[in-house]
């Protein structure tokens, strides 16, 4: 049967909408790779040279503790990509094989959660394997940081690991729906299932404190988020750089320094390095 398009003002077809969607993403991809090079914090200061004085003051204060930044692509997956590299790099540099073994146990628990929630294993097993391959890779003493950077810039590896993190973030939220529900409803007005379906599981959906809490709890990895925004404390008299440490519940009694430190600017996460 011959079909004629545009007879009744139909909206664009799904594939046309998707083509545009991917074109926008590709344009973003052209600007920066998934993961930039490590840069001194002064490059951040240079960005704000002509800008807001609160930012300038905060970056100066930031410089007292942190020495370098590594940027990530702003494609909505930046939190997960930043976490992936920052955590793996920390494992590589500390040669902490105990931690690598511990996180693998967490991965097994996450797998069970996903199965209990009704996910078919084939939907996530390849993504899970991508993450454990990277965990194995950083335990190899011959792996260099440059090689780890290459791995994390590889789209197949990076996207697979991001998707694994999205799976387990969603799994953790749904497993503890009673805990997460007030946070989710408060910020998005959505029910837990809907939030996971629309704001966690699709690639490119941005992360907020709900995602960070859930991923940190699921893997048992503390995460520090340092906030660079225009907020001021004490009626504008003091300018401090706020940060929040997301500490998984089993570690909440201990004094821990998060292995992953990220800089948050509204809508985006980059990796921070202490001096």
């Amino acid at each position: 049967m011959e079909m004629v398009l545009d007879l009744d003002g139909d909206r664009p077809r799904d594939d046309e909408i998707m083509a545009q969607h991917y074109a926008i993403r590709a344009e973003e991809a052209g600007k920066i790779s998934f993961l930039g090079n490590k840069e001194p914090l002064s490059t951040l200061a240079a960005e704000y040279e002509l800008g807001n004085s609160i930012f300038k003051t905060k970056i100066e204060k930031l410089g007292e503790i942190y020495g370098a930044i590594r940027r990530t692509r702003g494609d909505g997956n930046c939190f997960f990509r930043a976490f992936m590299f920052s955590y793996l790099e920390n494992l590589l540099e500390t040669k902490n094989n105990l931690e690598a073994a511990r996180v693998k146990d967490s991965v097994e628990k996450c797998k069970q959660t996903l199965l209990d929630l009704g996910h078919a294993e084939f939907t996530f097993e390849d993504f899970l394997a991508s993450f454990t391959e990277q965990l194995d890779a950083v335990q190899d003493v011959t792996l260099s940081v440059d090689k780890l950077v290459d791995n994390c810039r590889d789209q197949a590896i990076s996207d697979s690991v991001v998707m694994f993190f999205r799976f387990i973030t969603s799994g953790e939220i749904r497993k503890r729906a009673d805990f997460f529900e007030p946070f989710i409803f408060g910020t998005s007005g959505m029910a837990v299932q809907q939030f996971c379906r629309t704001s966690v599981e699709p690639m490119g959906e941005e992360s907020d404190h709900v995602h960070i809490t859930a991923l940190s709890d699921a893997l048992g990895v503390p995460i520090r988020i340092v906030y660079l925004d225009s907020s001021v404390g004490d009626g504008g008299k003091t300018v401090e750089v706020n940060f929040h440490d997301f500490i998984p519940s089993e570690l909440s009694q201990e004094k821990v320094k998060p292995p992953v430190m990220l800089l948050y600017r509204p809508g985006h996460y980059d990796i921070l390095y202490e001096k």
């Binding site: 909408i17 998707m18 969607h21 379906r197 629309t198 599981e201 699709p202 490119g204």
Partner: peptide
């Protein structure tokens, strides 16, 4: 089938 697709779906 558009931007809300996820590899978690089949």
């Amino acid at each position: 089938l558009k931007d809300q697709w996820s590899p978690a779906l089949t």
